[in-house]
Design a protein around this nucleic acid. Sequence first.
DNA 1: GGATTTATTTAATGAACGTTACATAAATAG
DNA 2: CTATTTATGTAACGTTCATTAAATAAATCC
Lengths: 207, 207
Amino acid sequence: MSARGRPRAFDRDAALSAAMDVFWRKGFSATSMAELCEAMGINAPSLYAAFGSKADLYEAALRHYGQAASCAVWGGFKAAPTARASIEALLMASAANLPGDDHPAGCMVTLSAVTELGCERLGALAVQARAEGEAQISARLRRAVEDGELPAGVDIAAIAAFYACVQHGMSIEARDGADRRKLETIARAALAAWPGLTDAGAPPPGA
Amino acid sequence: MSARGRPRAFDRDAALSAAMDVFWRKGFSATSMAELCEAMGINAPSLYAAFGSKADLYEAALRHYGQAASCAVWGGFKAAPTARASIEALLMASAANLPGDDHPAGCMVTLSAVTELGCERLGALAVQARAEGEAQISARLRRAVEDGELPAGVDIAAIAAFYACVQHGMSIEARDGADRRKLETIARAALAAWPGLTDAGAPPPGA
DNA sequence: GGATTTATTTAATGAACGTTACATAAATAG
DNA sequence: CTATTTATGTAACGTTCATTAAATAAATCC
């Protein structure tokens, strides 16, 4: 059925992973085909045959990242029994994973295409990926209201926007060299807002 | 004394401002000399004579931004009577200024060199500029402890890191299209953490 | 006035960019 | 074995990149 013609001489997934690493570290515009070829250990024609173009490769790398790293960050979120525990798990997993210990620092999705509108399609892709994160938090909070964990008057959109914002900010801190401990400190500080945010009708102290 | 030779035919500050706009919108790597020349209304040799190189121009633009926009954001912070009011002013001014109404969205410093390490010197410059923001918050908190506004046991570094992180995150939200109201909602949510963070020895609820 | 200094325009520089022809190599199909 | 199909390496494609040489224009200095 399959395997007609000369077989591919490289591991497609490993090559994609190597490309992801370079893109993650340097961004789309600042990464050249030459760098990609060297990191992936293949020549340009092989790259084009397997992935289409530089932009297509970036898109594939972004999706690859979404499946791999995001899994580590959102796994605890989905498994946690309460909304509060979900958000704590999300922030703590972010703190654990964002520092660049054995990979580039910060979340590739968060940092992607923020400055580089060189390719419009890629920018839209990153925006959408970030929006999905906030939507997940919203959905979790909505469920918590339905479950009676949170009062009905709670401002779901505000809470989701806030914690998404903190998580995005943590990527920048990580990029600037923040270690796990510092990110956990930030996470705990953000969780200190929880009681104030989840008191039913009461307006937040800052209003 | 001055003004020997043929006088410059363009306004240096206006040209720098135009360059800042392009860099702010597209980032360093994704911006070409051709785009800069067109936006600035000058030819390449004039640009090189006045600013040195593309990287030098970016550095000048970043400093120009720091004086102009940061002023609007940090002005209220410095003038506020209490630490709490300073941080509220900082976040609210950020919410008011970050949306891209008559300029690119998000803070140029925050978004700068996040993805683009094409030029190492510029990356370091942006990291330093961001660190200065957090240092300002720390200094303000320290003063508040000295003044007796905050108890001595308060974790200054944690609070500063948290609010710096939120402010950085707001730039990403703004870049993704968040308007002033949404950013103000985030700011108020972040301020909801204030009581929990400034209770003296008590560990934050998330610990 | 002529000499000097600085800015501008035009045009070109070599290098690097992303991408692709082309010939060759390695597999299966018949 | 021959024909077909797919991948690979080499080498080139035309374009764009950041940068600059050279000639001209506009100001001050003496």
